[in-house]
């Protein structure tokens, strides 16, 4: 099946990547939350290499999903490209910092970051009204105004984007998270676009997905140049994640995810504790 892994391991990684792709797309958290801990704790892959694999997987899913979202008119390309400027800077900075830090420190930071991720998933699962949403402002003259067809209400939704400067600063933080820990940054981008900028949640998620591909690429290049991307490992995992994401979007797009969110928030919490203990153990 591949050049360097045994068939058994490759099969397991492909299957795992597939499951991560499905779960990630259903939960909207990206695969890195599950991918990095598993590669580090199960396969003893060095954390920098695991992050590199996660970044390549983010690029694959972002590129595949964004092409669909552009066709549906969900991704706001003008907003995306403006936020990409600070996201890319953050991503480059994050990758450079990560490459200066020892693996154990990166593992510690990763495990600490999992706690708010678990909290966010728990919050979403317990919130009776579903995902966070602010009423979309009526579209007026503005460079980022957009309109998309929302099938859930069978109508076109138009919106105006506000507060682009603070959103750009938040995008820098999201990019740093991507480069430093191999997480997509959607956990920051989506609420910021939705709550701060007034972008409807579906458009915010699609635009976030559109721009995380670029932030992941900016840092993946740095990992690639340092020889931290293991092609045999990355190819198998990424193929699995990509296939899982496509299936996840097509099949489970309309699934109610509250209970799944609740279950996986507990899983993420357990992973965070286990990884934290491992990183603190001498």
């Amino acid at each position: 099946m591949d050049a360097g892994l045994g068939l058994h391991t490759a099969g397991l990684l492909l299957s795992f990547g597939f499951l991560v792709g499905i779960v990630g797309s259903v939960l909207g958290v990206g695969g890195g939350v599950f991918l990095v801990p598993l590669l580090v704790m199960w396969l003893q892959v060095p954390v920098h290499q695991a992050i590199a694999v996660s970044l390549v997987a983010i690029i694959a899913t972002s590129s595949a999903v964004a092409s669909v979202n552009i066709e549906r008119g969900l991704a706001n390309m003008r907003l995306g490209v403006v936020l990409e400027m600070t996201t890319a800077v953050g991503s480059i900075a994050g990758a450079l910092v990560a490459n200066m830090l020892p693996g154990r420190v990166v593992e510690l930071l990763f495990s600490l970051m999992l706690f708010p991720v678990a909290g966010s998933m728990l919050f979403k699962s317990l919130r009776p009204g579903g995902p966070l949403r602010v009423p979309a402002a009526q579209a007026g003259p503005g460079p980022f105004d957009a309109v998309f067809f929302d099938p859930s209400v069978s109508a076109e939704t138009s919106y105006t984007v506000r507060r682009i400067v603070p959103a750009s600063l938040a995008s820098f933080a999201a990019g740093s998270l991507s480069g430093l820990l191999g997480l997509g940054g959607g956990i920051i981008q989506v609420p910021v676009m939705n709550l701060l900028c007034g972008v409807p949640i579906k458009a915010a998620a699609a635009t976030s997905n559109f721009l995380i591909g670029v932030s992941a690429a900016a840092s993946a290049v740095i990992y690639l140049k340092r020889g931290l991307v293991v092609p045999e490992l990355a190819a198998v995992v990424v193929a699995g994640v990509l296939l899982g994401s496509v299936v996840g979007i097509q099949v489970l797009y309309r699934a109610r995810s509250e209970k799944i969110q609740l279950a996986f928030s507990v899983v993420v919490l357990l992973v965070a504790v286990k990884m934290l203990k491992a990183s603190l153990t001498p």
Binding site: A3, I59, A60
Partner: peptide, 27 residues
Amino acid sequence: GWGLGLAGSPAAGRLLYAGIVALVLTP
């Protein structure tokens, strides 16, 4: 790359690497 890997070709690794580079260059 996987196909060449199954055939035992030493070029398999290079093709896998090229695939990853192509993916990174897509954005």
